[in-house]
Amino acid sequence: MTFLLSQIDNVGRSVARNLEYTARVLLMVYLSFRASFVDQAQGFRTIFSVVSMQIYFTGLQALPLISVLALGSGGVVILQSSTNLNLLGGTEMIGKLLVMIIVREVGPLLTALVVIARSGTAVASEVGNMGANREIEALESMGINPLSFIVFPRIVGGVLSVVGLAVYFVVISLLGGYFLTRLMHNLPFWFYLDSLTRSVAFEDIWLFLLKNTFSGTIIFVVSCYQGLSVKRSPTEVPIATTQAVVKSIIYVVVFNLMVTTLFYLSQLRKLGVL
């Protein structure tokens, strides 16, 4: 009985900790947006320059890595699908299958993982170092709200970059992957393109945007929060960075899984299965 009670106690504590963490993070997001929009004295031009720098670092500089991953994953999925659908006699299904795999699932998830690895770590360590070097205090002393100067532009720039990168991933994956594996399958291009365009529905676009927008938000909010948790010592920076990566991966994967589950449940309901 004692063991059971202590287990319940542990679960309760963990839930409370996570709820508190979520509340703190949401408060930070609210305050950063409020500081950026409510206070007219804040220099929007300076904030905009930080947003554009964030898009450059997170979006543009990630293009080569995203290209390699998109070509690789797209090529593999196209090759596997075309071969197996050919054997089963359902080649016209290839568009639907690729939309399901690449647009709905692999694109958003792989893009998010790449951004966590490249930019989540960079943001957490940069903001953490700013705290350790007293740069955040310095901003405050200059009357610059760190939430509007550091957090807001990173979230906005980060989300725009993630959505942009995910669109790029899907395009490169579906088109680049096709041409990369062209010699290994016998799918005519116009047939392939027609199958793809007929398979993309409004709900796919909606699901794609929802997943990427929220994944981007999660990554940059968590990374900024972990970075800001560094107080004075540089030894806190690697801890904050690791925490940012671990938490971002967990939240992004859980979020993607939840959305996918809800989406398929709604599909089943629409078909009358549920």
């Binding site: 940069e126 170092n129 700013m130 070097n133 007293r134 740069e135 205090e137 310095a138 901003l139 002393s141």
Partner: peptide
């Protein structure tokens, strides 16, 4: 109010 730090406080980027 202007504040001059003893150490640190310069924006590195």
């Amino acid at each position: 109010i202007g504040y001059g730090f003893d150490l640190g406080g310069v924006i590195h980027n």
